[in-house]
Computed example of a mutant assay.
Amino acid sequence: MRTSASKGPTMPNPQLHPETPSIGVVRESGADERRVALVPRAVASLVAKGLDVVVESGAGAEALMGDDLYLEAGATLGDAWSADIVLKVAPPTDAEIARLKTGATLIGFLAPRNAENKIAALQNAGIVGYAVEAIPRISRAQVMDALSSQANVAGYKSVILAASLSTRFFPMLTTAAGTVKPASVLVLGVGVAGLQALATAKRLGGRATGYDVRPEVADQVRSVGAQWLDVGISAAGDGGYARELTADERAEQQKALEAAISTFDVVITTALVPGRPAPRLVTAAAVHGMKAGSVVIDMAGETGGNCELTVPGETVVINGVTIASPLNLPSTMPEHASELYSKNLTALLELLVPGGRLDPDYSDDVVALSCVTRDSVSNRN
């Protein structure tokens, strides 16, 4: 089974829909998923280009975008699952895959690197799948980078959550009753989410410090007004991600971080390694060394968590330290998260549907690398 499309024009493009394809916007079935794949403004822009957009009734309800807004934008309400191109946010369930017609194109977060992914099911159903998280992180694809757009939302919200759980002010306050020093915030993992967390903590008046095993991001940390924590470890990997540390490097990192973490009021962790469990950065010993009233926000709970004491999806208090591991933070800000995601998808559609025809160019890295199922369809034709 093929799980990703290879680069190059070695295989002819399947002309699945020679006429103008219909685009379906479906309602998310996950209980905690409030985002929608296309907002009304994006629908209007597609309709203006002559595309037919079908929206499932209630698709935007959780994002506070009613059916009336989609109708005003030029969409029709109906069976979006039977469209030629179906857009969604979360990975599809087996029941949702069964609603797609053979030969349809599905675009969304498809979790191709997760062990529980539905890539094989999509392949068997004859669906052409484009995983937005597989879009290469290159300059011209930045507008399509859904991972980054949603990470920005999550990074911002993590700090707001930390401030609400903290027993201390974030900014320095000088009052007649005395001066309150600013909260100290440590962000572990300085990708897009981490940088946004640092910038937000700084805006709230906190003293922000960033750490990452990729020393080349130190300048980015300083660019948002934060300090850089250097523990002497470098583990830069491919595609801008960190590689997995060796056993010796993990031991060295653990020792250095345990000493540093105890000096901070808030610790926010964002470290992820694609396709692997989240690295453990905050040990139980580090938590026990923190002052009562401190807060840990673990943003890696969906892959096990960066904190040893994390309970994914829950908030616990241990020795006076609050440890929160919210899942799907972008969904807690569905309006702006949907707007950003919608822009990502419309930019990708410009590549897949040039001139109003579904004609993806697989010699284009963005198209080829994001396409995770296509052979089965080619072979059927």
Rank of each mutant, 00 (worst) to 15 (best):
P334E: 07
S262F: 06
Y241I: 13
T246M: 06
V295R: 07
H288T: 06
L281R: 03
A260I: 13
E249V: 09
G240C: 04
Y241W: 09
V295L: 08
G237H: 10
A292Q: 05
E302F: 04
A271D: 05
G304V: 11
L329R: 07
E302K: 02
Y241F: 09
G301F: 03
E302G: 00
R250Y: 08
V266D: 03
L281M: 12
F264M: 15
D230L: 00
Q254S: 15
A284C: 00
V282M: 08
V287H: 06
P326C: 13
T322Y: 05
I297T: 00
R243C: 03
T283L: 03
G320F: 06
G304A: 14
N306Y: 02
V267I: 12
I318N: 08
R250P: 05
A337R: 08
G313P: 07
V316H: 07
A324D: 10
L281W: 03
M333H: 01
A292K: 06
S331V: 02
R276W: 07
A271G: 14
A324K: 12
V273F: 01
G301C: 04
V273Q: 06
T303W: 03
Q253L: 15
V282D: 09
L309I: 03
G305H: 00
P326F: 04
G289P: 01
N319M: 00
T270D: 06
E308R: 06
L229M: 12
A286T: 08
I261D: 01
T322R: 04
D248R: 14
Y241E: 02
H336L: 05
T315R: 08
E244R: 15
S262L: 01
L257C: 03
G289F: 02
V296Q: 04
L327W: 01
A278S: 14
D248T: 15
A286R: 07
A292W: 00
P330G: 07
V287S: 10
A285W: 05
H336E: 12
L257D: 00
V317S: 14
E252N: 12
V317A: 11
E335I: 15
N319G: 07
T269H: 03
R250C: 09
N306H: 07
A251K: 14
P326W: 04
E258R: 12
E314V: 09
D230I: 01
E302A: 05
T332W: 02
K255P: 06
T315K: 06
L257K: 04
W228R: 08
T269E: 01
A256H: 08
T246I: 05
A256Q: 11
V296D: 06
R250T: 12
